[in-house]
């Protein structure tokens, strides 16, 4: 039990620490691919540190909700990052690691983000909130479908079970997961405000979604939100790994496998980050009104994956 708690704390702490690193790594890769000189790997940490040391400036009309939202969003993301199996599979929080609960957690964070953005009543805030709701309204069902497809294989919506089934039992190729993986990539670009749905590095009023919502934040509030963004990317990466490349995650009660699991995790994250940077480089950001089509495609692919599962794998 104690080891379990310890492991749980380690895993969550690791997520908190690794998340900005992953962000920094993606930025480096992107800079390399685009032929720019790269920022230092630890740049996100410096930014966070700088932001935490500043004095917060709040808008006149900001209510308590506005101040409260960053903490809530951050908490949601920490919880999410904590329950997705990254290192080991049997943790005290494992029973909570249900994919539907996870989608709920993300939705909760998003709702508060949108509410906070509208709270101060600037034009950009509500614009961003509206766009965010449009995108997420389409992304969520697609994400759920991806999870359902994956859960059909293991007959469970709990992540530890899914991982256990995929990684620790007889190896098998699941064609349906090929569809789910493509759909998952499409959804996660939308959810994490990455290219081609959103561009995290611009503040262009015509196109921005996520950035428009956090324009009014500063100092520690902004730091928490940035950290939450990094955590969200980390969580999605971990989810992708757990669903599609789960090999290496330590099985229940197998402490000796932990160092290997850590190594595997770092390697997979490094590769995943590089792949993300590559995809962001070769794709162009699409017009906002193409986003529904993009996400609709993701949804259809996930449905297709489910159909293929019934045809080929039953």
């Amino acid at each position: 039990m104690t080891t379990g708690v310890l492991l749980q704390i380690t895993q969550t702490g690791l997520a908190l620490l690794l998340a900005p690193l992953l962000m920094g790594w993606v930025n480096i890769c992107r800079a390399w691919l685009q032929g720019r000189s790269a920022p230092p790997l630890l740049q996100p940490y410096y930014t966070l540190q700088k932001l935490f040391h500043k004095d917060a400036v709040l808008a006149h009309d900001a209510t308590r909700l506005f101040r409260f939202a960053p903490y809530l969003i951050f908490a949601c993301m920490v919880l999410a990052a904590g329950i997705v199996p990254t290192l080991a599979n049997d943790l005290p929080f494992s029973p909570a690691a249900d994919v539907i609960a996870l989608v709920g957690l993300f939705a909760l964070a998003r709702v508060f983000q949108a509410l906070a953005a509208m709270d101060i009543g600037t034009a950009f805030g509500s614009l961003g909130a509206r766009r965010e709701m449009l995108v997420s309204f389409l992304a969520e069902p697609a994400l759920l479908m991806v999870f359902f497809t994956a859960s059909f294989i293991s007959q469970s919506t709990e992540l530890p079970h899914i991982v256990d089934r995929l990684a620790h039992q007889e190896f098998a190729l699941y064609p349906s997961l090929a569809f789910a993986a493509v759909a998952f990539w499409m959804v996660s670009t939308a959810e994490n405000a990455r290219i081609p749905v959103d561009n995290p590095s611009t503040h262009l009023e015509l196109t921005m979604i996520h950035e428009a919502m956090i324009l009014e934040y500063s100092a520690r509030h902004l730091a928490l939100i940035e950290w939450a963004v990094a955590l969200k990317l980390f969580t999605y990466s971990a989810l992708g790994i757990a669903l599609f490349l789960p090999w290496g995650i330590a099985a229940a009660g197998d402490l000796n496998a932990l160092p290997l699991a850590l190594l595997a995790l770092v390697l997979k994250l490094a590769l995943g980050g590089a792949a993300l940077a590559l995809l962001e480089t070769i794709n162009a950001k699409m017009r906002l009104f193409r986003a529904p089509e993009f996400l609709g495609t993701a949804f259809l692919l996930a449905v297709l994956g489910m159909l293929v599962h019934f045809l080929l794998e039953v």
Partner: peptide
Amino acid sequence: MSLTYHLQVVNLLAAVLLLIAFAMLSQ
């Protein structure tokens, strides 16, 4: 599922074929 690996690969390729057919539709 008790198919041998190469048949699983065939199944996977079948899925890829279908995926490409869809990609063509949206291209």
